[in-house]
């Protein structure tokens, strides 16, 4: 674990992603309630929290899929809320995002899904593309399924193909929306290992959303607790585990806190 990660609230080497005063509502429902956060270069931040805490909405702000009502998202010095669309589009090439249900193109084979970003942004050389697709599939422990259609895969396999597609362009920043929900412990561990491997080899910055505390402990430099559109606490995994925040305690112990009981 990087030494700097032991100082919570401070990014290791200048932030890769800075989030300042993020506010977002859908209709009358306020989903994000003023979030301030910095993610350092090469850091792995894991966001945990109950359903409806605003985690998915938050992570979509980081890549400009949703525009905030107030506040700013700054990625490597570029403010996504102010930058022209072309700049945002170009910046997204440095991101890899894995979606909750995989979000694979269901009219394309596994090969074409993973090849998609490579063909569009890197090379049209069939040999190189095939080699990279094979590499990505091996990384997620699914070799040889290039010709299958997404509908022929299990939920967990779809997720891992989505993961392979997200890392196809060797991104600098990885965003994972619930990467292991519904996966068995062995695959969960494999995903955790892949994230750690990418970080150690390429120095990837990662932001992960999960309910899975095992995964969080395995991959996180810091764990942030989200509740009702706010960051409640943010700590290293060790400190998080020993947190005396009442809501974090309730979350770790699997209890429904007083206030949230029906």
């Amino acid at each position: 674990m990087p030494a700097a990660a032991s100082t919570p609230h401070a990014a290791p080497t200048g932030p890769m992603i800075s989030v300042i005063g993020l506010v977002k509502s859908f209709g009358a429902k306020q989903v994000l309630n003023g979030i301030d956060l910095a993610v350092g270069r090469g850091e792995s931040l894991v966001l945990v929290g109950g359903s409806g805490a605003g985690k998915s909405v938050f992570i979509k702000h980081l890549i400009g899929l949703i525009q905030p009502d107030e506040g700013h998202v700054v990625v490597d010095g570029v403010d996504l809320t102010l930058a022209p669309p072309e700049t945002v589009l170009a910046l997204r090439k440095r991101f890899g995002m894995s979606f909750q249900e995989g979000a694979l193109f269901d009219s394309k084979t596994v090969f074409d899904n993973i090849a998609f970003p490579i063909l569009r942004h890197r090379t049209r050389d069939r040999g190189q593309v095939a080699a990279r697709v094979r590499e990505c599939l091996e990384l997620v422990r699914l070799p040889g399924i290039e010709d299958k259609m997404p509908s022929e895969l299990s939920g967990g396999m779809r997720r891992r193909v989505g993961f392979a597609r997200a890392i196809a362009l060797e991104p600098e920043i990885l965003l994972f929306d619930e990467p292991t929900t519904g996966l068995d412990p062995i695959n969960t561990a494999a995903i955790g290992n892949v994230i750690n491997q990418l970080r150690s080899e390429l120095g990837v910055t990662a932001v992960t959303i999960t309910h899975d505390m095992n995964l969080a402990r395995r991959i996180a430099d810091r764990i942030a607790m989200m509740r009702r559109g706010r960051i409640l606490s943010i700590d290293t995994p060790d400190l998080f585990q020993r947190s005396d925040n009442w809501f974090v305690r309730a979350f770790l112990d699997g209890e429904v806190p007083e206030e949230d009981r029906p």
Partner: peptide
């Protein structure tokens, strides 16, 4: 899938 397209620049 449309979000995924945006995410893949």
């Amino acid at each position: 899938q449309i979000d995924a397209l945006y995410a893949m620049a």
